[in-house]
Structure formats: C-alpha cells, structure tokens
C-alpha cells in the first residue's frame, strides 16, 4: 500500500498533504505521529461525561490536526460537531455527529496501522 492509496482509502487528500510535506517519507512520519495524539480520546471521555465544553475544545483540536494532515472526511465530521458544540451545549444531533467522527477516526487509525504494519 502506498501513501497515496492510504489517503484514498481513508478519504483524505494526498495532493494536499504532499504539498505540505513534500515527500512520502515525511508524510509517513507524520501519519505515525498522528496516532500518538490524544485529542480523540479526550473527546470520547468528555462526551461520556457530558462535559460539552471540554468536548468542544477536544474536537476543535482534532479538527485542526485533521485539517493539517489533510484527512478531508475526518475534518468535515469534526467541523460539524465543532459548530454543534460551539455554544457549550448538546442537542439531538450531537450524538450523530460524534458517531460520524468515531467512524471516520477508526478508519483513519486502521489505515495508518495497516501502513505501519506493512512498513514493519
């Protein structure tokens, strides 16, 4: 699997990340770093505790990182929840947006892990 395949599979923009980081090697390095980030887990625990202010901060951070990594789908999903939680309160759409992020994040995570396994 190439980095390009990887981006196609997770719904990201390979052209964009390449313009930012120039080489596949560097893209890979940053993909693996992405797995170390904890904003997704912070988002999960904040959602569980119904602490929507913290959830907003976490999803806001995750949105920034995703955008920087050119994870188009995940960024869009984060964007919806960010706007939804901006007032610090949840509504009946919140949970749906959160599920969308979870799905998208799991896909990104699995794809990167596959790439990592392949690299050995």
């Amino acid at each position: 699997m190439t980095v390009k395949n990887c981006y196609e599979q997770m719904g990201g923009s390979y052209e964009e990340i390449l313009s930012r980081l120039m080489t596949d090697d560097r893209v890979k390095k940053f993909l693996f770093k992405f797995l170390n980030g904890d904003s997704f887990y912070q988002l999960c625990s904040a959602m569980e505790e119904k602490n929507y202010e913290e959830a907003f901060k976490a999803v806001h951070t995750l949105k920034g990182v995703s955008a920087n990594m050119a994870f188009t789908d995940l960024t869009q999903a984060c964007n919806k929840l960010t706007e939804n939680l901006r007032g610090g309160q949840a509504d009946n759409e919140t949970e749906g947006y959160f599920e969308e992020i979870k799905k998208s994040y799991e896909l990104v995570k699995k794809t990167i892990e596959d790439l990592q396994a392949q690299e050995g």
């Binding site: 980081l21 560097r26 940053f30 770093k33 992405f34 951070t61 990182v65 920087n68 990594m69």
Partner: peptide, 13 residues
C-alpha cells in the same frame, strides 16, 4: 502549541 503534530508540522515547514 500543545498539539505535537502541529508543532512538528510548523517546524518541518
């Protein structure tokens, strides 16, 4: 920046 990935990206740039 508290987010390592953002810091590293800016550093790389």
């Amino acid at each position: 920046d508290d987010e390592e990935l953002n810091r590293d990206l800016l550093q790389a740039i």
